[in-house]
Simulated assay, not measured.
Amino acid sequence: MSQSVKHKWYEDVVALLVGALLIGMGVIVFSEAKVLTGGVSGASLVLSYATPFTFGQYFFVLNAPFYILAVMRMGWQFTLKTVVAVTLVSIFPTFAKDWISLEFVHPAFSAIFGGALLGMGMIALFRHRAGIGGVSILSQFLQDKKIMNAGIFQLVTDLFILLAGAFVVPLENLFYSVLGAIVLNLIIAINHRPGRYFGS
C-alpha cells in the first residue's frame, strides 16, 4: 500500500494559487453567461447580478462568519489556508477583467466549462487541506450538533439560491445552472476519492 506523504509548504502555496485561479476563472465564465452555482459562490453571483457590487466583494464578506466554525471544526491551519483561498478567489475576477475579455459565452458552455473549472479548483484546495469556506462548513456544524442533516441543509440552501436567481437571470439559465452543478460535483466525485491520492 502507498504511504501518505505530507505536502511541502511551497506545494501548498502553489496549490492555493492554482486552485484559486481555476475557481476565479470558473466564476468569470459563469458570470459572463449569467449562470449560477450553489453555496456562498452562488449567493455572491446572485447579489452581484442584482446590485452594483462585485462578486468578489460579496464572496469575501459572506464567507467571513464561517471562519469561526472552520476553526472549531477544522483547526487553525485549515482556516488560514481557506482565508487565503477565499481572498484570492475574491480578488482574481476583478483584476482578470484587465487581462481577459469574453465577448460571448453560451450558458451551456459556461455551465460545463465553468463547472469543470470550479470542480478542479476545489480539488486542488481539498487535497492541500483548504477550502473556499461557506455553507459546507455550516452544514457540517449543524449535523454535528444534530440540528439538521448536512446534505439536506446544503440542498435547501442551494435551492433557495436558485429560487432567488430566478429574479435576476433568465429562467433558461437556471436549468443551465443545474447542469453546471452536476458537472462540478461529478468532477469532485470522480477525482477526489479516498485511495486514489496519498498526499496530505
Rank of each mutant, 00 (worst) to 15 (best):
D144M: 12
F30L: 10
K146L: 07
V89N: 09
R127L: 09
L69P: 00
E103A: 13
I188G: 02
S48Y: 03
P107H: 09
F175V: 09
L47V: 03
I161A: 07
F113G: 00
P93W: 11
A150K: 13
M1T: 04
S4L: 12
G38S: 03
A116Y: 04
Q3R: 14
E32L: 05
A130S: 15
K81D: 02
I190P: 00
S90M: 07
E103P: 00
I123A: 04
I112Q: 01
F109R: 05
A43V: 10
F60C: 05
I190R: 15
V61Q: 02
P170K: 09
I91M: 12
T51C: 10
N185T: 02
L159I: 13
Q154A: 11
A85P: 03
L163V: 13
L138C: 09
T82W: 04
F141R: 07
K145L: 13
S44F: 07
L138H: 04
I147D: 02
S31A: 14
V83H: 08
G39S: 04
A124W: 08
I91V: 15
A43Y: 04
M25G: 05
F141V: 02
E172A: 12
F59Y: 14
Q3F: 13
V13I: 15
A70P: 01
M72N: 11
A15I: 02
F104D: 13
I68T: 07
A111Y: 03
M120N: 08
